[in-house]
């Protein structure tokens, strides 16, 4: 099995998982909301191909792709079943149905749905790992929209002052919900990090190998103990921010499909390998979704209900 095959298979897993989710929403099998990673798969897959399985991740509202790619880097492998169960609100979900799409936790992976607020938490985690000399680094995922949040800049300052093993991954998918980056971000993205003396690796690409190469350098910098780093990836989100809130023109949506990471990477595999990946992913997801669908819902126990009325 080639490295290129593994990269392709994980990107395809994310793509098909997210497509399945959107289909399930449209048929009413899933409720609530979701934020799909379709179009950005190369970012997470490239990054988690060069991290250690025990590194720590703090992800955001658009976390499914990060989670599946993180899982692929772990000894256990990706677990789309427990993610699907979580999204369906099942007791077998990653956090027992309490968190849902934006709030999951598994091994050293955490996510939360508050823009910017996760960054100081990730900085504190990096401080803990540094103090305990674990050798682990912390990756925190933000987006262009996060650049409007003040907590981010407080955290960059701390991370630089204390030389924390923190890699800030900024995925610029060019829209914060419906607001284009031109209406929300003044000045330079890289300059924001440079102001704190944080080195930046910046790529405008959807090629997983180019992202892997940049991530390898940035991760090495952080792991070496040289302090925080930033990895800025300019990417494209093919689908709506969540569901049904896409105000972009059909022309734009067609144009950006030329940057499809799967299409870019596919020629590096043989047709037989691509078919094999498709078959493997398809079987994995069919099993994951049908098993999750038949799992039980959680119940509120006395213990949980009274978390705040007893100590």
């Amino acid at each position: 099995m080639t490295d290129n095959f593994a990269l392709y298979r994980t990107m395809l897993l994310i793509r098909r998982f997210e497509e399945r989710l959107l289909a399930e929403f449209s048929t009413g099998k899933l409720v609530g909301t979701t934020h799909t990673y379709i179009g950005q798969e190369a970012d997470a897959v490239g990054i988690f191909s060069v991290t250690d399985p025990d590194d720590i991740v703090f992800s955001n509202h658009r976390c499914h792709g990060h989670f599946l790619a993180y899982g692929a880097s772990s000894p256990q492998g990706s677990d789309p079943y427990r993610l699907a169960a979580e999204l369906m609100g099942k007791a077998t979900g990653l956090v027992g149905g309490r968190g849902g799409s934006q709030h999951i936790q598994w091994r050293n992976f955490y996510s939360n749905g508050i823009q910017g607020g996760i960054v100081p938490v990730a900085a504190g985690m990096a401080l803990a790992e540094k103090e305990q000399q674990s050798g682990k680094i912390v990756l925190v995922f933000i987006g262009d929209g996060t650049l409007g949040e003040g907590a981010l800049y407080e955290s960059l300052n701390l991370a630089a002052l204390w030389r924390l093993p923190l890699l800030v991954v900024l995925e610029n998918n060019r829209y914060a919900q419906t607001t284009p980056v031109e209406l929300a971000v003044a000045g330079s993205m890289a300059g924001r990090f440079a102001a704190f003396g944080i080195p930046v690796w910046e790529r405008e690409t959807s090629d997983v190998l180019e992202i892997q190469s940049a991530a390898r350098e940035a991760v090495a910098h952080v792991r070496f103990g040289a302090g925080p780093a930033a990895l800025i990836l300019h990417t494209y989100r093919f689908m709506a921010h969540s569901k049904g809130d896409d105000t972009r023109s059909p022309e734009e949506l067609t144009r950006i499909r030329q940057f499809d990471p799967l299409t870019i990477h596919a020629p590096r595999l043989s047709p037989a390998e691509r078919d094999a990946a498709e078959a493997e992913v398809s079987a994995l997801l069919a099993e994951a979704f049908s098993r999750a669908a038949s799992d039980p819902f959680p119940a509120l126990t006395t213990d949980h209900r009274t978390l705040n009325t007893e100590h």
Binding site: L127, Q132, S155
Partner: peptide, 19 residues
């Protein structure tokens, strides 16, 4: 620094990771 949100966030991250 004068960064109350970061102080609390950092403390939270530290607590999550064993301190």
């Amino acid at each position: 620094p004068i960064s109350e949100a970061a102080i609390l966030g950092a403390a939270t991250g530290m607590a999550l990771r064993g301190l």
